[in-house]
Each structure stands twice: as C-alpha cells, then as structure tokens.
Design a binder for these strands. Structure first.
Lengths: 225, 225
DNA sequence: AGCGATGAGATTGTCGACAATTTAAGTTAT
DNA sequence: ATAACTTAAATTGTCGACAATCTCATCGCT
C-alpha cells in the first residue's frame, strides 16, 4: 500500500552505517532509554565491531541532536522534556510550512495527481476506521510534501533530523495519538491549496495543521501530569 | 564594539575540534575551493595529525552540509550554484521568521533594551557611512534575535549550520554587498515589533527582510552572468 | 575500433594499542 | 568531621597498520 515510502529506506553500505542505524533505532524506540550514557567500549563489544565505528556512529547521532556529547567525558542520549517537544514542533511548523509553500510552486502535475490519489485511498480507510492510517499514512502525506518542495536543505533537515526526533518523543511519551479524522480533513485542504498552486494558502494551512497537532500534544501532556 | 559577538566563539578542546574549525574556515573563505576533493591522507600530513582526526573533522563538515561524502570514495566540498543559494535563503526565511516570532514572545526586557541600544549605536555608524556595519553589525542583529527565540533546535540549525553555508556563498560569490541603509530601517521595524511583543508582525517583517536580501542577491547573480 | 575483463595503484574503512583526561575513592592534615 | 590532595581505575582521544573497495589504465576479445 505505502510502497512509495521505501524511497526513504536509506541503505547501509559501511559498518558505521549499520551501527548508526541500529543505534538510532534502539534509541528512538526506547530500547536504550533517554538520558542513558553511551559507552563506546560497551557498545563495541555488544555490536561486535571496533570502537572506531561505534565512535563514528555516535558522532552522527550527535549531529542529529539525538545524543549530547562532552569532550573527554562521553555521550548521553538526550533527555526528553515537554518543552523540548514544543520546541521541536515550533521548528516543524516553520519548516513544513515553507515546504508546503514551495511544494505548491514546484510539485509536478504527476506528483500532485499521486498526492490526490493517496488522499482518496486514505479516505476509504478512515471511513473503515483502519487504525494504521495514523502512523504510516500521516508520514506518507507529510513526506511527499516535503519532497515536493524540491529544496534539498529543507528535505535533509526534516527527513534526516527532525522526524527521527519527533518519532522518539512520540514513541517514548506514548503518543500514538488519534486526531485521525480531523487531521484527514486538514490534509485534504492542504492538497487542495497545492493543486490550486496557491503557495501562501498551502503554507498557512500546513502551519495551522501542525499547530493543531502541537496543541493536541500539549493537552495530553497536561493530562498526564 | 561588537564584544557580545564572542558568545559564538566556540572553543576547540580536542584536536578534531581544531581540525574541524580550521578546515571549515579554509573552505568557507575559499582557500580550499568549492568542488575540490578532500583527501584524508593529504590533510593529515598537511595538518600534522593522524588520519582519524581529519576523518572526524570531515564527518562533522558533512553534517553541516559543507562537504558531500560517498562511501569508499571520499569527500568533496559542495559546489556552489545560484539555485543552492536561493534554497538556503528559503530555509533562512522560514527559520528566522519563526525566530523573530519566538523572540517577540521570549526575549527578556533586558535583551530588548540591549537590542535597541545596538540599533542606536549602529544608526550613528550608518550616518557616518562606516562600511563594516554590513558584515558584523548585520550578523550581531540577526544572532541576537535567533538567540532570543530561546529555541535550542532553531539556534543550533542556524548558528551551527546555515550561517556558515551562507557566509561561504557570500564570500565566494563576492557578495559583500551594500543594502546598508534600507536594511537598517528594516532592522528598526523588526525591533519595534519585538518591543511591542507582536510575534506575528515580527515574523512577517523578518521574512520580508530576508526576502529582500534574497531578491537583491538574485539580481546580482543575474548581472554577473 | 569498440567493449568488457583484469590487474596495479591509491584511497577509504576498520582495527587494536597507546596516550591523555576525567572521575571517584582513599588518604592526610587541619 | 570536613576539606584538600593524591592516586588508581576507567573512559575517551589519538595513532599507525592492515583490510576492503574504488579508480583507471592496460590488455584481450569480438
């Protein structure tokens, strides 16, 4: 169904790549808890590779803002805070808003057609209350618009950086949230604006869409106190 | 005069830090031309350090999008294109717009006072036609607003990433441009909006300010063809 | 002559050992 | 008992050597 999503399946060629992907996965999914220390020697024995490749993987994680490192001391997984999640969503609003604006200008007719098709297929699933819309479907929608911006810096920042962090927060704070139907309508309007080649409306709607998400999350954080 | 700017003087503690800063400086300033290959062995003999530290420095440069790397092949300095600069300014508009919005909400009264003072001191220099306003003064202004956002992700993306890239483009495409007086008025209006705690206006004005810059640069690029 | 295979040379990726620094426990003196 | 100093263990930073991979020129085949 979401076959197109495999565009983002980065492939590991070197050992460091594998270590990096594995470490990132374990951290994002909470197997390695946030705040814990990453010992180079420990990980190198655990993964059966040299310390150099673990070290390189940790360096890459630092560049993604997934771990923090202090010279001569070591690296720790970043600790999650409600404020941190809010900050993330502020950046997301800014970047994805711009992505939607650029997508309205730069997406090809074919890409827009595909995006509409995706939405139609999802509309059936929403009516049938198929649950896995939320995760994969929402991702697919947002990724297409990000890619549609055709801005490599924007794409890299969001796909390689922010999205993994956001997923880390969502997984670990237990936010596999609902907001299915209303979010779907918002998606529909965004696509409409893009189809009409209306950059400003597309940006505005995307920003509102993400702001709603943020508010939704803030409310949940309040409740869990 | 711009004493406050030393906040950004990151200090190198390890050899890799030194190599990273030195390499970045040489690349940004064009000593190492864009598009050229970075040989690990060559650089390690040139800098008198082991290949490992050069390698780590190159990895960090890759994370900054200053070099591109292909596994088992090597790293090259990114090549500059007019389109690349435009893309950079699109991201900058998005992020700094959000920074201005957040700064209007989160800057302390003291920080706003200082910002106004900075502007006043610069206004004298503009009248006296002191040239070095452009570089340092403009940077100081933008950095204060970015820091004023109090959003660590935003700050890191702009200060550690985008700004070095933008400087690289400006230096190498010979854009130590004018736009002094008009930019100064724009700065004044942005500070006014922040002083009035008007996030939306602050964002809008910052975005327009950066758009003007972009248009100015685009015009120059046209001329140099 | 054109095209694919082959091999030498050079470059990157990975490894284990050593050096430098931090951390924490233990000791001593006030 | 507390504070400062000393020292030992552990961790990170750096190094040179070896292994794997790519590049490119040469050679052979159709």
């Amino acid at each position: 169904m979401w076959a197109k999503m495999e565009f983002f399946q980065e492939q590991a060629v070197t050992s460091s790549d594998k270590a990096f992907f594995r470490l990132r996965k374990e951290i994002v999914e909470g197997v390695i808890p946030s705040g814990s220390k990453l010992s180079e020697t420990e990980l190198s024995t655990k993964y059966q590779v040299s310390r150099a490749v673990v070290r390189e993987a940790i360096n890459r994680l630092e560049a993604c803002n997934i771990v923090e490192r202090r010279a001569n001391v070591g690296a720790r997984v970043v600790s999650l805070s409600p404020e941190g999640l809010i900050e993330l969503y502020q950046v997301r609003e800014s970047l994805e808003g711009m992505a939607a604006r650029l997508a309205a200008q730069h997406m090809s007719a074919q890409e827009i057609t595909d995006l509409n098709a995706l939405l139609n297929s999802q509309s059936h699933e929403v009516k049938n209350a198929e649950l896995y819309y939320q995760e994969a479907g929402d991702l697919d929608f947002h990724y297409r618009i990000i890619l549609g911006s055709k801005n490599s810096h924007l794409i890299s920042m969001l796909v390689n950086g922010l999205y993994h962090l956001v997923r880390m927060y969502r997984v670990q704070l237990g936010m596999a949230g609902p907001r299915v139907t209303s979010a779907f309508d918002e998606h529909k309007h965004i696509v409409q604006a893009i189809s009409n080649r209306d950059p400003e409306l597309a940006e505005m709607l995307m920003r509102r869409h993400i702001t709603y998400s943020k508010n939704n999350i803030e409310a949940k954080l309040q409740n869990s106190l």
